[in-house]
């Protein structure tokens, strides 16, 4: 999420004349307004990042203690040892993001244009699951996907589980402890992050534009392709980022819904940090994850070519 929150475009020093004129208290107002955010960022982001960075190049052992030795090999070690986890995390997050888009777009569209007086009720329903904790919501999926449950029974009867099994997404006629379960869990847990920005950018589209397009003999599909979708792109970009970034660092879904073959990089970092107590490797892994996300997001934003995020 950090990549999303650049400090508001405050007037940097370059613009401001160095000596504030007498009685120029107003010039300082923007800085006072920024102060809480800057302090917040400093204490909860910049300082921890600094310590994390220093930890990531330390070496030693948990018994002897760790010392700053500029041990860059932590990074190459983490990279080679956990390449599989990195790849898996990004793939699962990407799949979940795509699913969120496919599920979320029609819903946001419906709420924005067709819901009428139900609009607010529907929006509350989108957010309602957030009233319970993330953990509880994920645990609930264990009941939904249970081996003996109706969902697995129905999918099995339709032979859909055979199809997903051939694709390597499920195993032995079950859903729990398979890649599909983890991706479903991620999709469900991050869906509102996709729907809300999509809704907010769709809702701003003037319906008169649709009418104008129709007056010019555009078919509904063409209206969507040429008018609605391009105008909703900021929402698509914001939604995909808000889904992809937290999903790639998530570890709860893989932990509760996955088998040993589905563990993501978040699980590995958590384990290295808390159980193995190899703090430098864990810190290096965290930085690698951040770097990977940053690169992917940068390339994506360049390609999507949007300045305005929401």
């Amino acid at each position: 999420m950090t990549a999303l929150a650049p400090p508001p475009p405050a007037a940097p020093e370059a613009d401001a004349p160095p000596p504030p004129p007498p009685g120029g208290r107003r010039k300082l107002t923007p800085y006072w307004l920024l102060l809480p955010a800057i302090l917040w960022l400093l204490v909860f982001f910049a300082v921890p990042m600094f310590f994390q960075a220093s930890t990531s190049v330390q070496s030693g052992s948990s018994g002897e203690g760790y010392e700053l030795t500029w041990h860059w090999a932590n990074y190459t070690d983490a990279m080679s040892e956990y390449a599989e986890h990195f790849g898996r995390s990004i793939m699962y997050a990407a799949a979940a993001t795509l699913l969120c888009l496919v599920i979320g777009y029609p819903l946001a569209y419906m709420i924005a244009f067709r819901a009428g007086r139900w609009r607010n009720v529907l929006l509350v329903m989108v957010i309602a699951p957030f009233f319970t904790s993330f953990l509880i919501r994920t645990l609930a999926w264990k009941h939904i996907l249970s081996d003996g449950g109706p969902l697995v029974g129905a999918l099995d009867a339709l032979h859909l589980l055979d199809v997903t099994a051939t694709l390597g997404m499920t195993e032995d006629d079950r859903l729990l402890a398979t890649p599909l379960a983890v991706i479903c869990g991620l999709t469900y847990n991050f869906l509102p992050f996709m729907i809300l920005p999509l809704y907010s950018s769709l809702e701003r589209i003037n319906p008169a534009l649709h009418e104008a397009a129709q007056d010019l003999y555009a078919k509904p599909a063409t209206v969507f392709r040429k008018v609605t979708f391009p105008l909703s792109l900021p929402g698509v970009v914001a939604g995909t980022l808000l889904t992809f970034i937290p999903a790639s660092g998530d570890y709860i879904n893989a932990k509760l819904l996955g088998s040993p073959g589905e563990q993501m990089i978040g699980n590995a970092i958590q384990r290295q940090f808390l159980n193995v107590r190899d703090y430098p490797t864990a810190a290096a892994m965290s930085f690698l994850l951040m770097a990977a996300i940053l690169i992917i997001v940068t390339v994506y934003i360049r390609r999507a070519g949007t300045e305005e995020l929401v």
């Binding site: 052992s61 948990s62 040993p260 589905e262 563990q263 590995a268 384990r271």
Partner: peptide, 19 residues
């Protein structure tokens, strides 16, 4: 286990459980 042994063993075990 002392801290170093714990780290070694936990690391090996973490690989098995996939994390």
């Amino acid at each position: 286990l002392d801290d170093d042994a714990e780290t070694t063993y936990e690391d090996k075990f973490s690989k098995v459980i996939g994390a």
